[in-house]
Design a protein around this nucleic acid. Sequence first.
DNA 1: TGCAAATATTTGAATATCAATATATACACA
DNA 2: TGTGTATATATTGATATTCAAATATTTGCA
Lengths: 129, 129
Amino acid sequence: MNDELNRKLYEMHAEICKVLTNPKRIEILNLLRDGERSVGDLALIAELPQTSVSQHLAFLRQKGMVLSRRDGSSIYYAVANEKIFSAMDIMKELLLENLQADQELVAGLAGGPVTAGATVKKYRRKAGQ
Amino acid sequence: MNDELNRKLYEMHAEICKVLTNPKRIEILNLLRDGERSVGDLALIAELPQTSVSQHLAFLRQKGMVLSRRDGSSIYYAVANEKIFSAMDIMKELLLENLQADQELVAGLAGGPVTAGATVKKYRRKAGQ
DNA sequence: TGCAAATATTTGAATATCAATATATACACA
DNA sequence: TGTGTATATATTGATATTCAAATATTTGCA
């Protein structure tokens, strides 16, 4: 019955996560951690072309992740919901823990096939490539 | 000095977040919430072609988000780090809160331009489109 | 009104992603 | 060894994303 609705929800869920899949957007969001900033400031600090910053801000705005406020000729952006930082932090932790696991895997392989085989036998991490 | 390294980190951070930007991957991850499942089961439950499930699992595996274990002719997948669920949950909360905010905005606009104007004056939510 | 600064939007080319199809591999069992 | 089942990989065409360059809009101020 609400199969259709579920699918729609998954789509929206995936869609909003796209906010975090561009390195420049992540950098911009990080710059907004300690409060609002103007477009020009963001461009200056991140060393990005204004037009690029503006594009990413438009995207973030369209997804409801940032709010904008005009003051004179400048426009200030702020994060709409601080929860985005929690999500970012968790994903970063995941990234770092994965990197660490990979490193341990490599170290294990270097230590000889016998012990290495034992540590990766039950579950396979990153088969292929 | 580590400007280059920072950029690399942002890239990897953005890259790992791609795990969450496909509705089918989100559904698959949700199915793994209560433990491991075989590829066939996942395909059956999610009503997706096996080849599609396999592709998404390969992607998740390549990003280190799932581990696989072979048992006979079946291959069982499990989430590698439960933190991914926290990130998913937060993003979903964000989504729902945004939907709610939009709804309130619409309700405000329907209530007449005077009060509506007052509620959205300071910060702008979703300018354009 | 006209000009400059700040920001936004549009456009096009390169690249990435997706789903579907076809093909390949690994295992179990006879 | 041969066959069937489970899973993986490769390819292809359609669609989406990205970046940068050009252009447009808004505001402040002379």
